[in-house]
């Protein structure tokens, strides 16, 4: 076939030895060169530009702002962090963390049936449908999703219309009369903010939960019911522990996203600030970059702690 030399064989073929060949030879002899070439651009971008920016931001949280001139005082101090602890700022942090926790809890409850059904019962076409049914809302425009709730919660919107239609307006009014969670209308209450958070982050909970539940072998559940466990016992003692890594993985998203969001509470909810809004206004109109930076450290610390806990529970296998 090739040069027909059956009896006279060479150890080395005359494969192309142009420039590409030479470079290729170099990569083979010194694989580390290729590795470095591949890693340099992303590392420059993410490792230098991005991480650099984050560190610069962190550094600024150790500066303070001069109360009279409004200029940044470039002297290392913990004063700005102390400022986080004044009641008004502490309120913001507590409000945000409680909201994140409640949103996370609620999304676990709403996501579970969807994830469980998709993981265990849906087959073939239904499975694909369920998958897309979660993917499409996940990837739908974030602002459009918020906008949709503005429509729903509006005074003349579909929710009020529904309550009027079913003569249950009194129920809604009674609910809105409850302090803290109520308000003038749903769109300016914490409940409204909560609903939008829940809606926007829900798909982020369903997917990892489904992934975790799919890894629970069916015979585990059968074995449990064969042993005479009630469905509730099976759920509590078998399903829940096995689904936990997925729940934690999902909660990383719902928790982190709620902690850092500043658009949802700005558009729907009471006028009280969340961490994201505080960061945004401090860096913007107030020009208090150090305080804004100190505020961003809060979700990072909380998430860092959360991720550390999650890692110990093995949640990352479900991502």
């Amino acid at each position: 076939m090739n040069n027909g030399a059956n009896n006279r064989r060479a150890a080395v073929t005359s494969a192309g030895s142009g420039l590409a060949g030479q470079i290729s030879d170099l990569f083979w002899r010194k694989p580390v060169i290729l590795l470095l070439l591949m890693l340099t651009p992303p590392l420059l971008w993410l490792g230098v530009v991005y991480i650099g920016s984050l560190l610069a931001l962190l550094a600024q949280s150790f500066f303070s702002i001069d109360e009279f001139s409004g200029l940044i005082n470039y002297q290392l101090t913990l004063k700005t962090y102390a400022e986080l602890l004044i009641p008004a700022n502490l309120d913001i942090i507590l409000r945000t963390v409680s909201m994140a926790a409640i949103v996370t809890l609620a999304s676990v409850i709403v996501a579970f049936p969807v994830a469980f059904y998709a993981a265990r019962y849906a087959r073939g076409r239904w499975k694909a449908l369920f998958y897309l049914g979660v993917m499409l809302p996940l990837w739908s425009s974030y602002l459009v999703k918020i906008y949709a709730w503005k429509l729903i919660l509006a005074k003349e919107g579909i929710l009020n219309w529904f309550f009027e239609l079913t003569h249950l307006k009194w129920l809604l009014d009674a609910y809105l009369a409850i302090p803290l969670i109520g308000g003038n209308s749903l769109s300016v209450s914490y409940t409204g903010t909560f609903l939008v958070f829940l809606y926007v982050w829900l798909p982020f909970m369903v997917l990892p939960m489904q992934a975790a539940l799919e890894r629970v072998p069916a015979n585990f559940l059968e074995a449990s019911s064969d042993l005479g466990a009630t469905p509730w016992q099976t759920f509590r003692n078998v399903l829940l522990p096995l689904a936990l890594p997925g729940v934690i993985a999902g909660s990383i998203f719902t928790f982190s996203l709620t902690l850092g969001d500043y658009i949802i509470p700005q558009i729907i909810g009471s006028s009280r600030l969340f961490i994201g809004q505080a960061v945004y206004s401090h860096q913007g109109t107030a020009g208090n970059i150090p305080l804004a930076a100190a505020f961003t450290v809060v979700p990072v610390v909380i998430m860092g702690f959360y991720l550390w806990m999650a890692k110990r529970k093995g949640a990352f296998d479900a991502l």
Partner: peptide, 27 residues
């Protein structure tokens, strides 16, 4: 084949040393 490189010693094919020849040039 050339997918690994020796830490030490010499490999020959048809009496030609080939440990510096990449796999795509080895016959």
């Amino acid at each position: 084949a050339g997918f690994e490189r020796p830490t030490g010693g010499e490999i020959k094919i048809l009496d030609e040393p080939i440990q510096d020849i990449p796999p795509y040039r080895r016959n």
